[in-house]
Nucleic acid binder design. Structure first.
Length: 618
RNA sequence: GGUCCCGUAGCUCAGUUGGAUAGAGCAUCUGCCUUCUAAGCAGACGGUCUUUGGUUCGAAUCCAAACGGGAUCACCA
């Protein structure tokens, strides 16, 4: 991806400590050494040293012809003498650790707290992006792997929106094809009870997607039995798999569907509509929605005219059997089929057409696909083709690839029935959260009504699950441990949710005691000393816009998860070390309240970027 | 076999553009609630960053090779 504009980061305030120190260091070097430095990277000072920002002087030793420590000493002294921001420094070898004046911290706090849009960035050109995710098949319910996909896509969409992009969320439903016909056929065969009544979601009490999933499994069973029988009778396995009567029937059904046979189409519509009702319920449960849903039954014929175009442009070539190919060997890829010899489409043909269509519909500068890493190769080829066809959007395409989710027992395998169902998992997670939370609450929830409790437990269960799946780098294959996923302690969603509730509780108490929390009360000058933990909190908060921006450029919800945890953890340390409401110095007290309020708000925003709600009480 | 991804504490994972003695959580052990929510905090224990070379003031990070795990290389999607 092209690097984004770094300049949009600092829209937060007139007073940006980091930038101020950076430019001051540049001036220091110019004045002290008559040299210019263009890059002034600062890093957070390690915990065991005093200071907030660290400037590494090793790289300057050659140009300035001085020892690293000497340079640090000189620059540090200069900063203290010539700026109001830097209050002190210490030098350890090539590391210049810089401490910031309390007045500067409080200034920053005031700017952040006074800006309701803090952390919402803007793109000067009003850039737009489309995120495609979820994209389920209509022959089975969503499972754990789909949840990772959905949470990623949803979160990335929110992060990009916070970065100032116009975001369009799309979903392409795979609602046709052989696999759909399998469910349809099985339903026609087994879906009627002894008295001739067809099974429906209502009659069975099953969610529509689960009901259809059941028939998909039934087909597979019957088909396998048939193949085994044929093999036992002497037919070679491969031949049996192709010629089994059930498979023939499925193929015939697909042909009928493609011809628009009314009866087949009616059955298809009926079953799919049940599945959609089921999916809608799941999406509502997990808080995921789309701006536009595409159906493959409408798009599967697209792309053929692009094949013609490619042939005319000489990008594709036709073989003797009249199949059409592209040769990408000079890019380290292979030769790839784009149209079958019988003139019908393959996956690639369709994707070429759909990508064009999405661009025609929305004209977004970028398109992102959240799709598992087993399709890495497919997307490399797709993007390469679109580049060669000279599509104007070709450089804005990105495959957000993610790894599989394994179980402690190993891979999820649908054939072995080890797949973790999404709905079941959410129900179990909520249940586990309820049990654990009820116990941990120790009476705190006594005044909650049943619906309030249910709402909280749902929030905690879902928060635990989303956080668990999002805190890991998408690219990495990850292990799903059911016990860990519902944990309320440590680096978890509920831990962060708890901190939010904790802060809100303090703020409520302050209000009930008649302590006002107006920004105007924030005293910058006579504030006295800030505790290092308070400085650390303000520093962390000031990093928020930058983290949002980095998460946007890297499509990385995990950055936000990590950040939210740091905020929560640091607040707990602050909360343990210093009293807020019992502070006798009212200036300090009000400053702490403002700091706490901003912290709650920022935790809420950050968790919101992960699609996680935070409670007022827990 | 070709290509791509991954390899960090017993387990699950962080580790920003190469920087200080590599960090969290879980698990195990030890302290801290008459005081704002203890669903918390503090501490202890735990490492040849898979291995070997290279690049340089400096490498978990960059390069190369090996080893281990995974994916993919269909006229499937």
């Amino acid at each position: 991806m092209p690097p984004q504009n770094r300049a949009c980061v600092s829209g937060l305030s007139s007073m940006n400590i980091q930038e101020e120190i950076q430019s001051a260091i540049q001036r220091a070097v110019t004045e002290l050494y008559q040299q210019t430095v263009t890059e002034v990277p600062l890093q957070p000072t390690k915990k065991e040293f005093e200071g907030t920002y660290t400037f590494v002087t090793f790289p300057l030793t050659k140009a300035l012809r001085q020892a690293p420590a000497q340079i640090g000493q000189a620059i540090g002294t200069w900063l203290v003498d010539h700026t109001t921001v830097v209050s002190g420094f210490n030098v350890v070898q090539g590391f210049l650790n810089i401490s910031v004046a309390d007045a500067a911290w409080l200034d920053v706090l005031r700017d952040m707290a006074g800006n309701p849009a803090f952390g919402t960035l803007s793109q000067p050109d009003g850039a737009s992006v489309m995120v495609e995710f979820s994209s389920p098949n209509t022959n089975k319910p969503l499972h754990l792997g789909h949840l990772r996909n959905n949470f990623l896509g949803d979160s990335v969409s929110r992060i990009l929106a916070a970065n100032g992009y116009r975001v369009t969320k799309t979903c392409i439903v795979n609602d046709r094809g052989v696999h759909i016909c399998k469910s349809m056929l099985a339903y026609r065969m087994f879906g009627t009870d002894a008295s001739g009544q067809p099974e429906t979601p209502a009659s069975s009490g099953m969610k529509g997607d689960h009901l259809i999933g059941k028939y998909y499994v039934l087909f597979d069973k019957a088909y396998k039995a048939q193949v085994e029988e044929m093999v036992a009778a002497g037919t070679p396995k491969e031949e049996a798999e192709k010629t089994a009567p059930l498979m023939q029937e499925v193929q015939q059904m697909l042909r009928l569907w493609e011809q628009g046979d009314p009866e087949t189409v009616a059955l298809w519509r009926q079953l799919n509509s049940w599945v959609y009702t089921g999916f809608d319920e799941t999406y509502r449960n997990i808080g995921v929605s789309f701006d536009k849903t595409y159906y493959e039954s409408n798009t599967y014929l697209l792309g053929k005219e692009i094949v013609e175009e490619g042939l005319a442009k000489g990008v594709f070539y036709r073989k003797d059997d009249s199949s059409v190919w592209i040769d990408l060997t000079d890019e380290g890829l292979d030769q790839k089929l784009v149209l079958r010899s019988d003139g019908t489409s393959v996956y690639m043909t369709q994707d070429l057409g759909t990508t064009d269509m999405k661009y025609t519909d929305f004209g977004t500068d970028r398109q992102i696909w959240v799709v598992g890493n087993e399709q890495d190769y497919h997307f490399k080829v797709l993007f390469a083709i679109l580049r060669r066809l000279g599509r104007p959007y070709a450089n804005g395409l990105y495959h957000l690839s993610y790894g599989m989710v394994d179980l402690p027992t190993g891979k999820m395998k649908s054939r072995e029935g080890t797949v973790v169902d999404g709905d079941d998992l959410i129900a179990e997670t909520t249940e586990a959260a309820a049990t654990a939370a009820d116990e941990a609450a120790k009476g705190k929830l006594d005044e909650f009504s049943d619906t309030e409790k249910a709402d909280l437990f749902r929030m905690l269960g879902l928060g635990a699950l989303k956080y668990y799946l999002l805190k890991v780098d998408p690219q990495k294959r990850m292990q799903f441990n059911p016990a860990e996923s519902v944990d309320l302690h440590g680096n978890t969603g509920p831990y962060i949710q708890y901190v939010h509730a904790r802060i809100r509780s303090v703020l409520r108490k302050a209000a009930s005691e008649g302590i006002s929390v107006n920004l105007a009360d924030l005293t910058v000058e006579a504030a006295g000393q800030l505790d290092p933990i308070e400085q650390q909190l303000i520093f962390l908060l000031s990093q928020y816009p930058q983290r949002v921006q980095e998460a946007g450029t890297d499509y990385a919800p995990s950055y936000i998860a990590q950040y939210a945890y740091e905020l929560a953890k640091t607040f707990n340390q602050f909360y343990d070390k210093l009293s807020i409401l019992k502070e006798s110095d009212t200036t300090k007290l009000k400053n702490r309240l403002i700091l706490s309020a901003l912290l709650a708000e920022t935790i809420c925003k950050a968790m919101g970027l992960l699609g996680i709600e935070v409670p007022e009480k827990m």
